[in-house]
């Protein structure tokens, strides 16, 4: 790309040609050349659709409706979102997923604490628990339809444990349990990934701290409370907040396992049906916009939370911070030395 530009520069011996070959001109050239594709993609597939979404939310229309036949309905779609039982009511299901997400976090933290220290077969268990994250959504749907079918896997295992198979509910049909079944699937799928994150965070804590604590006779719980939790609290809090927005937009499990039947339709499952099955594009857009506003609000709160809560909390464990800073400085110095060696 730069080659043709240079040729152009040679041909025109004007001021522009000289400027384009100067440092500044080159800089501008490379900035434009390197950003044009990603920015075009970003605008075409993210911001333009976003604008369209806001616009469509004020119209009554289908995908195929020509522009002049669209009917402007003002705020009607938004009013419908809050009025219709199937729309806003579906957000209540998010509570199930929030509870599930919290259980998942606690479980992930617990397993991460175990697996960060030496245990037999630790890597094997880590892989076992992480692997579900790599299975595609539709396969998960089939696996769990099979798992929960009456008299199949889950019932068989419960029968081994002494439950009477006759008394067990239909896991995906019975409205008392089916949302919990789906939430369990979500936990099954994502908890390993959460755990790997936490293991990464725990491992990045200076190992000497653990050794010192053990020499001092601290037990596992004390170590967890005094060293592990404070040093990974940022990532834990971040995950708690992410799990809230994640629960609001829960989609995959109900979509692939029950397709929203029997009262399992979360907000996005309903939105998907309204958009692509009943083709009420305006209403679906209004639904999307409402949820996006909620998600933005949550993210904003998160930013504020981090800004004010963690600034105060960080001063408490000054000594730990100071130690970390010292180690970091040492490492940087070592690295610099190494680099010098390479260059020389």
């Amino acid at each position: 790309m730069t080659g043709t530009m240079e040729q152009e520069g040679k041909r025109s011996r004007s001021g522009f040609g000289r400027w384009i070959r100067s440092r500044q001109g080159q800089q501008l050239l490379i900035i434009v050349a390197f950003m044009i594709i990603p920015l075009t993609l970003l605008i075409v597939f993210t911001y333009f659709p976003f604008g369209e979404m806001v616009k469509f939310s004020f119209y009554k229309m289908k995908y195929a409706t020509p522009i002049d036949k669209r009917k402007f309905v003002g705020w009607q779609n938004y009013i419908d979102v809050f009025r219709r039982d199937d729309c806003f009511g579906a957000l209540k299901l998010s509570l199930y997923y929030m509870v599930g997400a919290l259980i998942q976090l606690v479980l992930a933290l617990y397993m991460a604490t175990i697996l960060s220290f030496k245990v037999k077969g630790g890597n094997f268990f880590k892989g076992l628990m992480f692997f579900p994250f790599l299975i595609n959504g539709i396969a998960i749907g089939f696996i769990f339809k099979f798992f929960y079918t009456r008299g199949f896997v889950f019932d068989t295992i419960l029968a081994w444990c002494g439950f009477n198979p006759e008394n067990l509910p239909y896991w995906l049909k019975d409205q008392a349990v089916n949302n919990w079944s789906l939430v369990a699937t979500s936990v099954w799928r994502y908890f390993g990934q959460n755990m790997v994150l936490f293991i990464g965070a725990i491992m990045s804590v200076d190992a000497e701290l653990y050794e010192a604590a053990e020499l001092d006779g601290a037990n596992k719980w004390q170590i967890f409370k005094a060293i592990i939790l404070p040093s990974i609290k940022t990532i834990v809090t971040l995950n708690i907040i992410l799990s809230i927005t994640g629960s609001l937009s829960a989609f995959e499990q109900p979509y692939v396992i029950t397709n929203g039947a029997n009262g399992t339709g979360t907000y996005f499952v309903i939105m998907n049906q309204i958009a692509h099955t009943s083709q009420k594009v305006g209403l679906a857009c209004a639904m999307a916009v409402v949820l996006l506003v909620i998600i933005f609000a949550c993210t904003l709160l998160q930013k504020l939370f981090f800004k004010y809560v963690f600034r105060d909390a960080e001063s408490e464990d000054e000594s730990y911070k100071a130690k970390k800073a010292r180690l970091k400085a040492e490492k940087a110095a070592a690295k610099a030395q190494k680099q010098k060696g390479v260059q020389a």
Partner: peptide, 15 residues
């Protein structure tokens, strides 16, 4: 990164 992909597809589909 905050915009959920499923929600965006409502209008991306049109594009």
């Amino acid at each position: 990164s905050l915009l959920p992909s499923v929600a965006m597809q409502v209008t991306v589909y049109k594009i």
